Amino acid sequence: MKKSVRIIVALLFMMSTAFFVQCGDSGEMEADNNFEQEREELLADLEDLEQNINEDLDELGTRIEDAGEDLDEGVQEAYNELQDQQNEVEEAITEVENATEDGWENVKSNTQEVYDDISDQFAQWQQDLENLEIDIDANS
């Protein structure tokens, strides 16, 4: 009888241990999935921003070539600033791609800040460019 009680206790102990290990693994898997999901979302946002910057750089580069000697200094400055932003976004993409789960919170925070700053600057730059186009059209 004592032997069967010991066997039952041992089986219950093993089952409860297996249950706790399994629960612990699902929490880790959830954290892994959360890390991967956050990383993919931030990476997609950065890649979209990079694409928008590249498109505007191409358009602005064409305008600079077409303007030749009549180029306004502000346009060249805007182009240079946009190139700097493009470089920052590329660096942020690399940082996110190389991020590990252990350092994710720090990478995410820094990269999100870069994304927010550049997105705001980019939106302001696009607004300034639209205003410049309106002024040019009005003066033509």
Results as ranks from 00 to 15, higher is better:
83 Q>W: 12
33 N>F: 04
53 I>N: 04
6 R>P: 00
1 M>I: 00
82 L>W: 07
9 V>L: 11
130 E>M: 14
17 T>C: 11
13 F>G: 08
24 G>K: 00
140 S>D: 12
103 G>V: 11
114 V>D: 14
48 D>T: 12
102 D>P: 00
19 F>L: 14
56 D>M: 08
40 E>W: 06
14 M>D: 03
65 E>Y: 05
64 I>S: 04
62 T>E: 15
3 K>G: 00
25 D>H: 10
140 S>W: 06
103 G>K: 10
54 N>T: 10
121 Q>A: 15
51 Q>R: 15
135 D>F: 08
70 D>Q: 10
108 K>W: 07
9 V>D: 02
127 Q>L: 15
68 G>S: 07
57 L>P: 09
23 C>W: 12
52 N>W: 05
7 I>G: 00
122 F>D: 13
6 R>H: 08
20 F>E: 12
127 Q>V: 11
58 D>Y: 10
86 Q>A: 14
28 E>W: 09
111 T>C: 11
7 I>P: 00
91 E>R: 13
21 V>S: 11
129 L>C: 09
48 D>W: 05
46 L>M: 08
71 L>I: 13
62 T>A: 14
45 D>I: 00
44 A>M: 03
102 D>H: 11
36 E>H: 04
85 Q>C: 11
39 R>S: 02
107 V>I: 15
81 E>N: 14
70 D>P: 04
123 A>I: 09
36 E>I: 07
119 S>A: 14
16 S>W: 04
94 T>S: 14
39 R>T: 01
55 E>F: 09
67 A>W: 04
56 D>H: 12
79 Y>K: 01
33 N>A: 13
92 A>I: 08
53 I>T: 04
73 E>W: 01
31 A>R: 07
62 T>F: 12
31 A>Y: 01
137 D>T: 10
81 E>L: 09
16 S>H: 03
18 A>Q: 13
22 Q>K: 09
4 S>G: 00
89 V>M: 10
94 T>G: 14
133 E>M: 11
86 Q>P: 12
126 Q>T: 13
35 F>I: 03
50 E>S: 14
32 D>I: 01
77 E>C: 00
126 Q>V: 13
46 L>F: 03
5 V>G: 01
34 N>E: 08
86 Q>T: 09
19 F>A: 12
59 E>T: 10
30 E>C: 00
135 D>Q: 13
29 M>Y: 07
94 T>N: 14
46 L>R: 01
118 I>E: 15
113 E>W: 02
27 G>I: 01
83 Q>D: 13
12 L>Y: 02
18 A>D: 12
40 E>H: 04
84 D>F: 10
